[in-house]
Design a protein around this nucleic acid. Structure first.
Length: 725
RNA sequence: GCGGAUGUGGCGUAAUUGGCAGCCGCGCCAGACUUAGGAUCUGGUGCCGAAAGGCGUGGGGGUUCGAGUCCCUUCAUCCGCACCA
């Protein structure tokens, strides 16, 4: 499929990937780099290959930047620049990955003193070194177009390098124009072309002059496979003289060895390295990492087709019979990670002829994430020093919105009466008296379970951080007028590191698992993400209670009769209508995975049956089957009370009978120029023409016409009447 | 920046797929039963307006007898990826 939409695939055989690793790496590398080359340097000394996705901006090049690791840096640096460049390389090398990540905006670089020749204009272009260029991507060299790339622009601004706009309407004093819309300017033979045309033309021209090649660049997801954990399939690889080899097929599968502890070894090797005498053929070390979770889950759907087969992972016959998965439901991480590998596995096994399906699943749905609500409080920072003083967010807000002055804020910080904690002058906690300029704030996460109604339970929080009482006094809190610490809320992914994880156990305890399950469904469409919020859970809990109450008179009657088969009075027309309306909607909605509307349909049904005082077995029994997927526990209980001994899971799904829901009249909304004015009930069998006649004859119609002649009357059967005046 | 999604009452949402916008639930208001209510039940609740009526689905425009739904444009928010040229 990738090939159909224009990608080029590189294929290797299993044998090649295992036995000719170097060659495979080279192949992939050359496919990935696929540079647009400037060709042989006309100066004759060296040529620098660059990669770009925007060859149209070629005439906007004003300098070249090499990654500090680039091999040519030391070769081309001139004598007079050598010292500075070396100092810079040293600096860049020692900046940790973390520093560089955190410090994206810090612009650093150094001029090498060397120049490159622009392949089209022949002009000299200064060559710089800069750590915003990554050695690992492309060729480690960038043709800098400050008019068209924001990072190049920032670099140019910082070092005072020239900036040429190449797209009409660019405001290069403010920022680079990275858009792919507009007309080319300052670009020789590209002038006047639209960006997309220019890209085509320049690639053709570059190829014609032999300066480089147009190619598609591939990006690979990091495919590190081994995990430093015990529980996972062992990888069938062993090492002989440090070189990995595949384990013979006849020696498969490898069984997880016994280990004394499920922990890494003292020198940091994975747990499998603990296994004693675990060697291939008694002498070679096995690979000690194990496969990740998705390795197994990417093919177990195939194993399930033929679980007892001890000859193959799945027989061809079973695979051909069951074919693909009908429906795959997973979260977004499945969509990006897991699913990628299931598809890969499937295609691989298809290519090897073990199975005959191209894709693992017919249908895919990504359910939304239940997000967490993180909480923050303000920490006081004076001249970069973090103080153990925390402020209620509303106070800081009113200061930032200039509702209270710096002096009154400072008064609150310094004055013991607003501070919870130590009563001796808290100013001691400050390094010194401070000015407005020296003061800043830092948002600190607090665990959500210490927050009640947006307010921090500071004593509880304090204790959790400093279990020993002696140190508990070290934190100071600046409270608002109500004596609270207000926290700031932010919706994020739920995660331990964000301290915003909520545990549903309490809710199960309080409301039961059925309520929790139904509430989660009730929250909204399956595919939507939303923050976890239990505000409405009482509604679902109340519904289940009401649902249960509906059955009590029915069970009382059954008990009185002392016979489970006691036929209660026949259901009325109205009751049957409610039941069948519900059967239809629930059946349709489950099919559409629209569980939120299932729940509300059930609420409507129970409200209506309660109003009808329905206690008929004929109605209530099928409802138990309908609710079983939504509230399985209560359904089993009720099913049992009807005298069934088998689980409701095996009960037959109720059948929808249309005859119970047909209406023989319809209340037409009558609208004038699209505005509904009144309703008129008419027999459903009436034709369009008859409906129009009836409606036009009405007194009310004449009233809204105000004596005017209608231009047009639109009648949609059993929908609407619209009169255009 | 690239890719994906979403904008409807105070809140979560619904809308038979172009036909009465706001179903259901939360919250809120009033009432009943109660020593009490974090129990239960009844009624009300989009906004403006005393009412008649008017206005309302992020903003602007369009198609249509009719638009939350279709088209164009714009803004905002969220998610995934990313110093990736």
């Amino acid at each position: 499929m990738l090939e159909e939409i224009g990608y080029r695939l590189i294929r290797f055989t299993n044998d090649e990937t295992i036995n000719k690793t170097d060659w495979v790496c080279e192949e992939i590398k050359s496919a990935l780099n696929a540079p647009l080359s400037f060709g042989e340097g006309s100066g004759g000394e060296a040529s620098i290959e660059v990669f770009t996705t925007r060859p149209d901006t070629l005439f906007g090049i004003t300098f070249l930047t090499l990654a500090p690791e680039h091999e040519l840096v030391s070769k081309i640096t001139t004598e007079e620049n050598k010292q500075q460049v070396e100092a810079y390389l040293n600096y860049a090398k020692n900046r940790s990955e973390r520093e560089r990540q955190a410090d994206v905006k810090k612009i650093t670089g150094q001029f090498t003193g060397a120049y490159a020749i622009h392949p089209f204009t022949g002009k000299q272009i200064p060559i710089w070194v800069g750590d915003y260029v990554l050695a690992g991507y492309g060729t480690g060299a960038v043709m800098a177009v400050p008019g068209g790339d924001q990072r190049d622009w920032s670099f140019a601004k910082h070092f005072g390098l020239p900036i040429i706009p190449v797209i009409e309407g660019s405001d290069i004093d403010k920022e680079a124009n990275e858009s792919k819309e507009g007309k080319m300017i300052n670009s020789d033979f590209l002038n006047g072309l639209q960006v997309k045309e220019a890209i085509k033309k320049i690639i053709a021209e570059i190829e014609k002059r032999g300066l480089g090649k147009g190619k598609i660049n591939y990006r690979l997801r990091d495919a590190a496979f081994g995990r430093q954990r015990y529980w996972g399939e062992p990888i069938p690889i062993y090492y002989k003289d440090g070189i990995p080899y595949g384990v013979d097929e006849k020696d498969l599968p490898i069984v997880l060895p016994e280990v004394d502890k499920f922990l890494p070894t003292e020198d940091g090797e994975p747990p499998l390295a603990r296994a004693k005498d675990w060697k291939y053929k008694g002498q070679y070390d096995y690979e000690s990492t194990t496969m990740p979770g998705w390795a197994g889950s990417s093919w177990y759907f195939l194993r399930y087709m033929d679980p007892h087969n001890d000859k193959e992972f799945v027989s061809k016959a079973a695979a051909d019979y069951w074919k693909d998965v009908d429906f795959y439901l997973g979260g977004s991480e499945h969509a990006t990670g897991h699913l990628l590998y299931v598809r890969f596995w499937t295609k691989f096994l298809k290519d090897r002829g073990f199975i005959s399906i191209e894709e693992p699943a017919k249908k895919l749905v990504n359910q939304g994430m239940i997000q967490g609500v993180s909480r923050f409080i303000c920490q006081l920072v004076i001249s970069g020093v973090y103080h153990q003083i925390f402020l209620s967010v509303d106070i800081v807000n009113s200061y930032l919105h200039k509702e209270i002055s710096f002096d009154s804020l400072k008064e609150k910080i310094v004055n013991p009466t607003t501070i919870k904690g130590w009563t001796i002058l808290p100013i001691i906690f400050l390094a010194k008296d401070f000015t407005e300029e020296e003061m800043s704030f830092s948002m600190q996460r607090v665990p959500v379970d210490f927050v009640d109604n947006a307010n921090l339970d500071y004593e509880k929080w304090n204790k959790s951080r400093w279990p020993q009482d002696s140190q508990a006094e070290f934190y100071r809190f600046v409270l608002n007028e109500k004596g609270d610490i207000v926290t700031l809320a932010e919706v994020e992914k739920m995660s331990k590191s964000k301290y915003n994880v909520v545990n549903p156990d309490e809710l199960v305890e309080k409301y039961g698992a059925d309520t929790l399950r139904m509430y989660e469904m009730f929250l909204g469409p399956l595919e939507q993400s939303k923050p976890w919020n239990t505000n409405g859970i009482t509604g679902v809990s109340g519904f289940l209670k009401k649902f249960w109450r509906l059955y009590e008179p029915c069970f009382a009657a059954i008990k009185d009769s002392d016979n489970f088969l006691y036929p209660l009075p026949e259901a009325s027309k109205a009751e049957l209508k409610v039941l069948h309306k519900t059967i239809k909607k629930i059946t349709d909605d489950i099919e559409k995975l629209s569980f939120n509307t299932c729940v509300s349909t059930f609420m409507i049904c129970v409200n209506e049956l309660t109003d009808l005082k329905c206690n008929k077995r004929e109605i209530l029994e099928p409802l138990v089957v309908l609710i079983a997927p939504l509230a399985p526990h209560i359904a089993e209980e009720l099913w049992n009370k009807f005298g069934h001994t088998e689980s409701v899971t095996f009960a037959k799904w109720p059948e929808y009978k249309e005859e119970h829901t047909v209406e023989n009249s319809f209340s037409y909304p009558v609208s004038f120029n699209g505005k509904t004015r009144f309703f008129h009930e008419l027999d459903s069998v009436l034709s369009k023409e008859d409906v129009e006649k009836e409606v036009m004859a009405l007194e009310q119609t004449q009233k809204y016409l105000e004596g005017k002649q209608p231009k047009k009357v639109i009648v949609v059967h059993k929908k609407i009447v619209n009169i255009v005046v």
